[in-house]
């Protein structure tokens, strides 16, 4: 079982790799739309990748209204 810190860390690493931004530039409280410069469709794409990585199913609405990595990590953690 991952710790919440591990989960958020893995999300940051995955987002950095997928959207090709430096990992060290991302922090848990960053707004991922703004920081990664992505739109809602790209955010869904990120969600699919996170599903595959964590092996959980995340409904689209998990990303509705969520803008920062930390909250996203909490939603995922709850399903692990």
């Amino acid at each position: 079982m991952r710790s919440p810190e591990q989960t958020v860390d893995e999300i940051l690493a995955l987002a950095a790799k997928h959207f090709q931004v430096p990992r060290e530039g991302l922090t848990p409280d960053d707004d991922f739309f703004k920081k990664l410069g992505i739109d809602s469709l790209q955010a869904l794409d990120l969600l699919t990748r996170l599903e595959n990585h964590f092996n959980v199913e995340l409904p689209d609405y998990e990303i509705q209204g969520v803008t920062d990595f930390r909250t996203l990590a909490e939603r995922i953690q709850a399903r692990l």
Binding site: L41, L44, L47, T48, D60
Partner: peptide, 12 residues
């Protein structure tokens, strides 16, 4: 006619 709803918008 019929309306089809998808609960996900993922392209796949």
């Amino acid at each position: 006619a019929a309306v089809v709803h998808l609960r996900t918008l993922r392209p796949e």
